[in-house]
Amino acid sequence: MHFVVHALDKPDAVERRLSHLAAHRAYLDTAPDAHGLTVLLSGPLTIGDQETMTGSFFLLEAPHLEAVEEMIAQDPLRLANVWETVCINKVLIRQNKMGGSG
């Protein structure tokens, strides 16, 4: 199954995000395997300058929603109270021009 995670930062979270970014990236190096899922695509959401980060986006392949919820709950950005909202939705991939199977 595929899931989209869309997490928006709190308005005052830029410095907090930056101070926890290395831990977040290190977490993403090991956490997906530990939770039995695959990160297909991920990256920060940005404002118009394409540099100022305002959130996070993930496209994940996972056996069930709980695996995604568990991984996101332990993310350093979540633990540091960076994200104001986190939406996790199952997605049925109808088109995929990035390669791989849908």
Score class of each variant (00 low, 15 high):
L45G: 09
L28Y: 04
Q50D: 11
E51I: 15
H24G: 06
A26M: 02
G48L: 09
K10E: 08
L28Q: 03
V39K: 02
L37R: 00
A23P: 04
L41H: 12
D29Q: 15
A7S: 09
T46H: 10
D49H: 10
H24A: 09
G36M: 13
R25Q: 14
Q50V: 14
P44C: 07
D29K: 15
A34H: 12
H24V: 11
H20K: 12
L40C: 11
P11A: 09
K10T: 04
P32E: 05
G36C: 13
T38L: 12
H6T: 00
H20D: 03
Y27M: 12
I47M: 14
A7R: 00
R17E: 09
A13V: 08
D9A: 05
L18C: 01
L40G: 07
R17N: 11
L28P: 01
L8N: 02
I47L: 15
A23D: 13
L21C: 01
V5F: 00
R16S: 08
R16D: 05
E15N: 12
L37C: 02
L8Q: 02
V14F: 05
Y27C: 13
H35F: 15
V14L: 13
P44S: 10
L40S: 13
P11Q: 08
D49N: 08
L21Q: 04
L40Q: 10
A34N: 14
D12V: 06
D12W: 06
A13M: 07
R16M: 05
G43F: 09
L8V: 08
E51K: 14
P44K: 06
L18Y: 11
E15T: 10
G48A: 10
S42T: 04
A23M: 01
H24D: 10
L18W: 03
E15K: 11
I47K: 15
L37T: 04
A22K: 07
H20L: 10
A34Y: 09
E51H: 14
S19R: 13
L28H: 06
R16Q: 01
L37H: 02
D33S: 14
Y27L: 10
D49R: 00
D49F: 10
H20N: 15
H20C: 11
R25D: 14
D33Y: 07
T46N: 05
D9I: 05
H6F: 05
H24Q: 03
Q50I: 09
P44R: 01
L41N: 08
L28K: 02
G43K: 08
Y27K: 08
H6Q: 00
V5G: 02
D49C: 03
L21N: 00
T46F: 12
P44L: 04
T46E: 02
P11N: 04
D33T: 11
Q50G: 08
A31E: 02
A7N: 01
G43W: 05
A22P: 00
A13P: 00
V5C: 05
E15H: 09
D29N: 15
K10M: 07
A22G: 00
S42P: 00
Q50F: 11
A31F: 02
P11L: 04
A22T: 14
I47V: 15
L28I: 03
P44Y: 06
L21W: 07
V5S: 03
L41T: 08
Y27S: 12
L40N: 07
E15L: 09
R16K: 08
